[in-house]
Nucleic acid binder design. Structure first.
Lengths: 262, 262
DNA sequence: AAGTGGTCTAGACCACCAT
DNA sequence: TGGTGGTCTAGACCACTTA
């Protein structure tokens, strides 16, 4: 109440800007969130206040927020407010973790129980980006990177070997101790420690024969067919922030994908 | 203009119904589309007319249509009208076909060219559902089914072996001639010949060793790792209408999935 | 020019949450 | 009780399509 009118950091929309008003409003909201003025978990000003600050009606502002909610940038809670999206275990599970035990008959409710994997770190090393890593992360070959190998288990069985690669320059101060002691998911750590929010990802899957490292980590026979998923995780502006290769033992688990309710 | 007021088949919303108005309106629209009163490609009455028929404001009606557009049930075209969604090649390509040539470095614009696969039918047989097929299609084991095997090629190279299974009782009069002479995609045929619109699908992927049939059809060595995708295609009310196993030679192609812009 | 969907507004009322 | 987001309305005006 007593805060000065400008404290929210929102600018009135330029009168000459292009496109529909609600999209301009969306861009302004995105700008203020990316600027860090509101960090993950923070409450935004109420819709009425934002609308007035931007010089648009509440209905128009709501359309802008609608889109940012769909894109996982914001979260709305009735009666409480609008918040900058936070990475928690549930979100990781639903948006980014797609390995499930095989069902004998694919009846499959939407309501089946999902299990959060148990993660063990088997390697944490610094190195220099090779060509593929550099291309994926849009850095230069030879730039410093951190590579992390994890073993993921479901119901006590090792199912996935994850190799994560991030640019050291983007994740300054990234170290093994913080990584091992993280209270939640890796994406939550990116967010709390480095201010990087993973919004979405591109994945490409292929079948390969298990190599020596994977065979050892997952306990499968050398040369057995395994599923290899290459993921590039993206933040604002589709900037790549993590390159991850997940090698999955699909002997009794599947990689699940839902083709678009919406 | 001269048509009687009731010709659109829309009922005013019951005054006692549950949930928000726009969702009731959505259900009524869905009901009238599922009833066949408006078939694929048909133009719906204008938003003003529908709104009046249902007894809601245009804004509310638009919210209902918004959701049905997101779910691929309806399509809007400014200045022309609102239409019942049609299955064309483009939609198939973007919503259901996820195999792409491997890129050496995963830079990957959203704007890359996509190629429609060349399809050859290698088998069309009638049979009886096994347990897995019956569970997937929610029919009884032993019920009559049609099984179709196709070879899909990209740039002249055989990449995918598709095995489609559909319930014969649902696809009455489904025959090889119509199938082979279809002008567009299989899902388009389902729609035009059998009034079945595929809205979405569930997929589960795993790596396996190429079996004899796949090895022959795709021209890969027996036992080579291949990607097997099990798809259940769903229509209104999440009713399963097709069970499909795609076996993909991922030697130089990937199975691509985008994790949720929205 | 007439008809369609697309945007925008201003305001009412409801449902939920805190205090 | 007061503040938040959620729903709904009625109407204005814009952009696109067709005739």
């Amino acid at each position: 109440m007593a805060t000065p009118a400008s404290s929210h950091g929102l600018q009135p929309l330029a009168p000459s800007a292009a496109g529909p008003l609600f999209r301009q409003a969306k861009r302004e909201l995105q700008r203020v969130v990316e600027s860090g003025r509101y960090g993950p978990g923070d409450t935004l000003p109420s819709e009425g206040v934002i609308a007035q600050a931007l010089g648009v009606s509440v209905g128009t502002l709501r359309k802008a927020v609608d889109e940012l909610v769909h894109e996982h940038v914001l979260v709305r809670r009735q009666g409480k407010g609008t918040f900058v999206a936070l990475h928690n275990d549930d979100r990781f599970l639903f948006q980014f973790f797609h390995v499930e035990p095989r069902e004998e008959f694919p009846v499959a409710d939407e309501l089946r129980e999902r299990e959060y994997p148990h993660v063990e770190c088997v390697a944490f090393v610094r190195g220099r980006a090779d060509e593929a890593e550099a291309a994926a992360l849009r850095i230069k070959p030879g730039d410093p990177v951190v590579r992390i190998d994890n073993r993921l288990s479901l119901s006590g069985r090792a199912v996935v070997h994850d190799r994560l690669v991030v640019a050291a320059q983007v994740f300054k101060g990234f170290n093994e101790k913080r990584f091992l002691e993280r209270p939640s998911t890796v994406y939550n750590l990116y967010q709390t420690d480095h201010g990087i929010t993973v919004l979405r990802a591109r994945e490409r899957a292929r079948a390969t024969a298990a190599g020596r490292e994977t065979a050892r980590i997952l306990g499968v026979a050398l040369g057995r067919p395994v599923l290899e998923v290459h993921r590039v995780a993206l933040t604002f502006g589709d900037k790549p922030v993590e390159y991850r290769i997940s090698t999955i033992n699909t002997a009794s688990h599947d990689y699940v994908s839902l083709l678009s309710k919406r």
